[in-house]
Amino acid sequence: MRPAEETKRPESGARRLLRNAAYAMGATGLGLGAASDGIAVAGRHLGLHLLGSIEITQGAIVLLGAGGMLYATLEGHHASVHMVTQRLSQATSARLARVMAGVSALVFLAIAAGSIWLGAEMWGGFEQTELLHIPIRWLRALWEMVALAIAALFARQALFGNAGEQP
C-alpha cells in the first residue's frame, strides 16, 4: 500500500461505521482478555478459583483477532513488498494495485466462503466451550461477517481504486 493511501481524507459514513465497529470489537477483546486473565490470577492468590477464565480469554481473542484484521485492512496496514511497484510509473502501479486488491478480495471471499460453509454445518451443533458453555457459533458468525467485510473492502478498492475509499 502506498503511503498516499494513509493521507487523511474525509471518510464515508459506512466506512466510519465499519472502522468504529472494528475498533470496538478489538478494544473489547483486548480489555476482556486482559481483565479475565488478570482477575483469574488475582483470584488464585486470594484463594478463590475462577474456573473458565481461559474460555473468556479465548472468546475475547476472537473479537480481538477479527476486529484487528478488519481494522488493519481499513487502515491499509498490511505488510507488502514494494520493490517492483516502486519502480513503475504512477499510473501503472495504481492499476497493478487495483488488480492486487481484486485478487485479495477473491482470496478473502474464499476464506469467508469456507468459514460460512463450516459455520453453517456447525450452526445446529451447539458448539460451545466446556465450562462456561459460551456459544461458539456466534463467534464463528462474527468472523464470517468480518471476512466478508474485508473481501468487500478489497473489492471496493479494486473497482474504484483509492478513490473508492471516499465516494
Binding site: 476472537v62 477479527a66 474464499a110 466462503a113 469456507g114 468459514s115
Partner: peptide, 13 residues
Amino acid sequence: LIKGGVVSYEVIS
C-alpha cells in the same frame, strides 16, 4: 475452502 475456514478460525481463537 474448508481448510481455509478451519485455519482462519483456529488462528483467531
